[in-house]
């Protein structure tokens, strides 16, 4: 018994030390240069991810990454091109954001790509959702917010980053779980939504941890609840919705995808490359400095993740869309 254990440990150790060495010898076989289509403008959140990940990935795979910015229609222009027009030989990939990836075509018949026309590679980061209020707000705890919403249906103003964004869907999911009705106010992104809450223009903002954390730490915002599986280490006093009895786990995720039909071995190289990058302590430190929460979901797991999200959001959108159109 003990011998087998030692053998197992020894071989595990051997593999563990050999693996990084083997990784250094990894060479991407599809091309020397890979174009990364970005569906959002330079300097935004997707670009920040690209600028962080790609130097490390370039080293691991021995390729050169070139960013091509095709902003417009919340990523739909870039993703439509990726799905319909680009070759699937591994020379072109794209950063895919959820839920935008799915909600784009869910909500708009004019947008024609689907996730079936893509090969999901891996998810890299997930920014958990949370609810924040201004420090002057009478809402001190999650309970206060719940009671305020229950007592005054359709009165509590809750900001989000836009119809079709993660915050919108998070607030709908929460409304269903808690049986309340908010007055949802759309903004053009997380930033304006957060600012409106800070300035007492709205009561609550459903936002994301990444962008609000500096303000929370500085005392310009108060976090009431976070929509993740476990408490965020940087916000130890903020309860999760789950532990309070409301099963709402949501956030916005970013990863990489390629056109459908990509050869499996090439896809595996990219998945493996990204996995190695996310396990690199230097990368982890750099990501933490930018308040990016690493959440690696590779290969087929990512495909399943996207499909589950699609099913979930479809159901929600079916229920809500009439209300949204008839406001």
């Amino acid at each position: 018994m003990k011998q087998r254990m030692y053998l197992a440990c020894a071989s595990a150790l051997a593999i563990a030390t050999a693996a990084p060495l083997a990784a250094q010898d990894m060479q991407y076989t599809a091309a020397n240069e890979v174009t990364v289509l970005q569906g959002f403008a330079a300097g935004g959140g997707s670009d920040a991810l690209a600028q962080l990940v790609q130097p490390y990935l370039a080293e691991v795979l021995g390729v050169n990454f070139v960013n091509q910015y095709l902003p417009g229609a919340t990523g739909a222009i870039a993703w439509t091109r990726l799905a319909k027009q680009e070759p699937n030989d591994g020379t072109i990939i794209s950063i895919t954001n959820t839920p935008m990836l799915m909600t784009n075509y869910l909500m708009n018949p004019a947008i024609t790509y689907t996730i079936e026309e893509l090969t999901p590679i891996a998810n890299v980061v997930t920014d958990p959702g949370l609810a924040v209020v201004s420090p002057n707000s009478p809402l001190e705890t999650f309970e206060d917010m719940l009671n305020a919403a229950r007592d005054n249906p359709r009165t509590l103003t809750v900001g989000n980053s836009g119809v079709g964004g993660d915050d919108f869907f998070t607030s709908v999911m929460f409304e269903r779980a808690a049986g309340v009705e908010f007055q949802k106010v759309p903004f053009q992104g997380d930033g304006p939504s957060m600012t409106a809450a800070m300035g007492d223009s709205i009561d609550v903002s459903f936002n994301n941890v990444g962008i609000t954390y500096p303000q929370i730490a500085a005392g310009n915002l108060r976090a009431l609840v976070v929509f993740s599986e476990e408490r965020i280490p940087e916000l130890p006093d903020v309860p999760t919705a789950r532990e309070l009895g409301y099963d709402v786990v949501a956030g916005s995720s970013r990863g990489y995808s390629a056109p459908a039909g990509m050869p499996d071995d090439i896809r595996d190289q990219l998945v493996e490359g990204l996995r190695i990058v996310t396990e690199n302590p230097d990368f982890q430190a750099a990501a933490a400095a930018q308040a990016m929460n690493i959440d690696f979901i590779g290969g087929d797991d990512y495909t399943a993740f996207l499909e589950n999200q699609f099913v979930e959001f479809s159901a929600i959108w079916e229920e809500v869309k009439d209300d949204v159109q008839n406001q």
Partner: peptide, 18 residues
């Protein structure tokens, strides 16, 4: 200015009170 801030974000400098 948002673009300038984007330029900062890449260096790990988050927009905020910091």
């Amino acid at each position: 200015t948002a673009v300038l801030l984007g330029g900062l974000m890449v260096h790990g400098i988050l927009p905020g009170p910091t």
